[in-house]
């Protein structure tokens, strides 16, 4: 019963982050929302008995994708000025 309540809370946070990534005004905040979504998905994978997938999603989805986005956003912002 405890794991089901935890899974429901994590799912609500994930859906809230996905809707926030659509509606915020700046692109930086949307990228951060998708990074948090990948991190919470990694915890949910652990509850679903998949430790390999959880490790991969945490390292690649939440670490490298967010940082690649920020490199490109910085380059675009720098070219304008």
């Amino acid at each position: 019963m405890g794991t089901i309540i935890l899974a429901i809370i994590l799912s609500l946070i994930m859906i809230f982050m996905a809707v926030a990534a659509l509606l915020v005004r700046r692109v930086r905040t949307a990228v951060l929302a998708s990074g948090i979504l990948s991190l919470i998905a990694s915890i949910l994978y652990l509850l679903l008995a998949a430790p390999d997938v959880a490790m991969t999603e945490a390292a690649i989805g939440s670490g490298l994708t967010t940082i690649i986005f920020f490199y490109v956003i910085n380059k675009i912002r720098r070219s304008d000025v």
Partner: peptide, 17 residues
């Protein structure tokens, strides 16, 4: 243990980051 080539490679890339 849980792990493997892709996870280890991503961790090494995080060190270089």
């Amino acid at each position: 243990t849980p792990g493997g080539g892709f996870q280890g490679g991503a961790i090494i890339a995080t060190g270089f980051l």
